[in-house]
């Protein structure tokens, strides 16, 4: 199918992008890598009047070491994120989850910032951002602001980014030396996650000293399993991990669709969390 008509703007700075959004009004839409937006446009499920293409904004492109954090421009592709030595060294969980995003072609084109701003509840990276305590830099007509992950994801396909704002970058606190695993259950390799568990742990003497757990597709947005994180401290056996993971579905209200109902998703949250933590911790 062919998208409906729209005007096209290709700014070269963030300020220009914001100005274009303001000028475009409510019907303006940002096009990053386009891997989420293009199908929407083609199926005419969305008909924006103005498309603001942010792919040529240099500021949104790099991955930088900011001391205690790694800052990733919103326009960095999944492929660049997954292969970045900085990400692999300091953000093992983000690298692991990003390798699971869609397929090679889509990872070449799609951006991490775009995926975050799209906020699909089945997306692979939002729970990582939440679990790792990332913060989001957003530019708007009033300047720039920084929003923690816990406030960034608002609802289904809804974030703190306003209609006239641009997500500029995402800053992840370094988790150097933490090991990680992303356990995703999907029906086919192309399918979105039914549920996935993102786990990263810091080990101390064979036991888990700290853990961060995020869950994919267990609600309108990503979920952080803080009860599990706390229960995991000191765990050094599979039994202890399994016991902690039993709390993974608590307080969640997952969606129901043709792939899974809520009860099955809750079961998966427990099972996949157990597996993700065990693999991250190297405990079997």
């Amino acid at each position: 199918m062919i998208p409906a008509k729209f005007d096209y703007v290709r700014p070269s700075t963030v300020d220009e992008a914001v100005a274009a959004l303001v000028a475009g009004g409510d019907d303006a839409k940002i096009l990053g890598g386009g891997q989420s937006l293009m199908p929407v446009l083609r199926l005419r499920m969305g008909e924006p009047s103005v498309i603001v293409d942010t792919t040529r904004i240099d500021e949104m492109k790099g991955i930088t070491d900011a001391g205690d954090a790694i800052v990733i421009g919103a326009g960095v592709t999944h492929d660049e994120v997954a292969k970045s030595p900085l990400v692999r060294e300091h953000l093992a969980l983000l690298a692991a989850a990003t390798e699971h995003v869609a397929d090679r072609q889509i990872r070449h084109r799609g951006t991490m910032g775009g995926a975050m701003a799209h906020a699909d509840p089945a997306g692979d990276q939002p729970p990582v951002a939440l679990a790792m305590g990332a913060s989001f830099t957003i530019a708007g007509p009033g300047g720039r602001r920084t929003v923690p992950a816990s406030e960034f994801f608002v609802d289904y396909f809804t974030t703190a980014v306003g209609p006239d704002e641009v997500l500029v970058s995402v800053s992840f606190p370094k988790h150097t030396g933490w090991s990680a695993h992303y356990e995703k259950l999907n029906r086919t390799a192309q399918a979105w996650a039914i549920v996935a568990a993102a786990a990263t742990v810091r080990m101390d003497g064979g036991a888990i000293a700290e853990a961060r757990i995020g869950l994919t597709n267990m609600g309108p947005g990503p979920i952080r399993a803080t009860a599990v994180e706390q229960a995991l401290v000191g765990a050094s056996t599979m039994a202890a991990i399994a016991a902690a993971a039993e709390q993974a579905a608590e307080g969640t209200s997952p969606t129901e669709d043709i792939h899974a109902d809520a009860e099955f998703r809750k079961h998966l949250a427990r099972t996949l969390t157990k597996r993700a933590v065990a693999k991250a911790a190297g405990i079997s």
């Binding site: 199926l43 029906r187 086919t188 390799a189 192309q190 399918a191 979105w192 043709i258």
Partner: peptide, 16 residues
């Protein structure tokens, strides 16, 4: 129809 596209109607890929 709930399986109205190849995103919902799952044709296996090489990885499956």
């Amino acid at each position: 129809l709930l399986t109205a596209s190849l995103a919902d109607y799952l044709i296996p890929s090489a990885a499956d």
